[in-house]
Design a protein around this nucleic acid. Sequence first.
DNA 1: CTGTTAGCGCGTTCAG
DNA 2: CTGAACGCGCTAACAG
Lengths: 334, 334
Amino acid sequence: MTHQAPTLDEVAREAGVSRSTASRAINGGDRVSPASQAAVEAAIAHLGFTPNRAARALATSQTGSIALVIPEPDDLFVSDPFLLGVVRGVSGALAGTQTQLVLLINHAGQPVGQMARYLRAGHVDGAIITSPHRGDGLEDALRGSRSVVFIGRPFRSEGISYVDVDNVEGGRLAAQTLLDAGRRRLGTVTGPTDMTAAIDRLDGFTRALADAGLPADAVDDGGFTAAGGEAAAHRLLDRHPDLDGLVVASDVMAVGVRHALEDRGLRVPEDVAIVGFDNLGAAAAMTPRLTTVHNPLVEMVDAAARILIGRLDGGGTPGENLVLPPHLVPGSTV
Amino acid sequence: MTHQAPTLDEVAREAGVSRSTASRAINGGDRVSPASQAAVEAAIAHLGFTPNRAARALATSQTGSIALVIPEPDDLFVSDPFLLGVVRGVSGALAGTQTQLVLLINHAGQPVGQMARYLRAGHVDGAIITSPHRGDGLEDALRGSRSVVFIGRPFRSEGISYVDVDNVEGGRLAAQTLLDAGRRRLGTVTGPTDMTAAIDRLDGFTRALADAGLPADAVDDGGFTAAGGEAAAHRLLDRHPDLDGLVVASDVMAVGVRHALEDRGLRVPEDVAIVGFDNLGAAAAMTPRLTTVHNPLVEMVDAAARILIGRLDGGGTPGENLVLPPHLVPGSTV
DNA sequence: CTGTTAGCGCGTTCAG
DNA sequence: CTGAACGCGCTAACAG
């Protein structure tokens, strides 16, 4: 792979300075005469020098890489734009830097202790964790670690920094949008109850209805999949044929919900209005366009990367977190 | 992140041997007495020792990591199971080893020279490249490099190792399936013509029809997206209302094609039979289940990882490649 | 089978 | 502002 990469020594020789001067020119740039600086830069360009990461890591005891931990992409996630969004976002945030992205997939059946050990072993300087499911243990294993940022609120957030969208507010916003449109008989298709995102969105939905003096009795789990959403919608309408509005906790599920409504001969939004959640692509692809709550994934990921990089530079404190506000993206389904 | 990790020296001291003996015990395990071996292992377990990757990399001039290069996941790919499948597969293939996976995303607008330089700089021992589009330059920049394996046939494959499914045979198989079912008026919805997979599948389709003495004149580009497939199907049927069978070059597009047929009041398979391509999830999710050509992505990725790892150990020669046979997965759409 | 001796390439004191 | 010297933690000959 490598072609006898030039070393710092060769650069220094070519520039006519000592190795330490060359090193300073490359890094701080401080306390180096302009002449030496220029000579070193010329030599670097000429030789095509790239610092050896291993040597630098050994000398500085910083690896220059961070880990992105994602859960095993099972069938649930394969079609979910969330994961690829996170991957793309983190990669983009690192694009300018020299930091490299190490991908750690939490393969099913693999003990989490192994991954926690990897992270503690210092093979990476920090980590961004997407660990949406309860009980995967990583949360507890990493509690209190500096240089670890979660994307999505963990179940117990003490000692854990995280970035999230305000899912409670999002759920409330979705329900309120339907209420404002005059709907009075609302139901919701939720995500799996072992994810905080699903729990919080339901919580917001319930609060909005309580504030309006309405019952939140039409609730069904769609498992964050299109097929699950379709089935959940059928079950809801079987039990509550009078529903005139549905908050669907993800756009992917909304696709399934819409099929279910079609099958039952219900028009959207005339008979049943729908508000989704995510706006990561699926909403815009639906016809008519889905009204949905925007999940600021890009901003979340950017923030997580920035917080982490700040930590690596010594700033910040563990436990701090950031919760971004959601907002409604109008469509034609309300 | 790290907790003052113990060093090999401490392990050796605790085990009562010299550092090199401890090193040998950890690595080869050769030429070490059972007693020393056991002592070292006990010390490692006791101290929780993990070798410092940077130091090891410096000493061996092997980084112990490989890169996975993927194109910017634009809207086309966000919903495509292909990328996540590759990521998961490579990660899985590396799960047992100590090799770490560095993710390199080919961000749009980022000069490929930069990425090629990164790969040549020796920051990783090897790379797996998914570079489906023509003209992205990486292909030429990496031609001849050992320790680089492409997933998907590049446009010019001289000096490049790659792993692929036999897309020509797949296209032929799809068409032949329809012919065997008695269909005589076939059309195809293709992928974008700047990807070899799309070109090859069309090629197979064309050959099968030629062998049967039929014209392959009903061809339209669906861009590998559901919406594109839907539009392409409409265009095809506008021009050729007599079509009774469609080869659709990806399952994702088949979803759109099926919508188009529904909209036109055409029954599947009675009026128009469909064969898709990929079998990465979308086919099984369709009702009725889509008849499709299985794309052995997992096997491809596994093979790529194995070839690469073999290269790192010194085996194999650049330019060798592997083309896996596709096979038909029956559904109810033919 | 084992310990001793050298580096791997770079950052960083510490005198000049 | 500069260079010489040391060490980061580990592997790899080389004698024993």
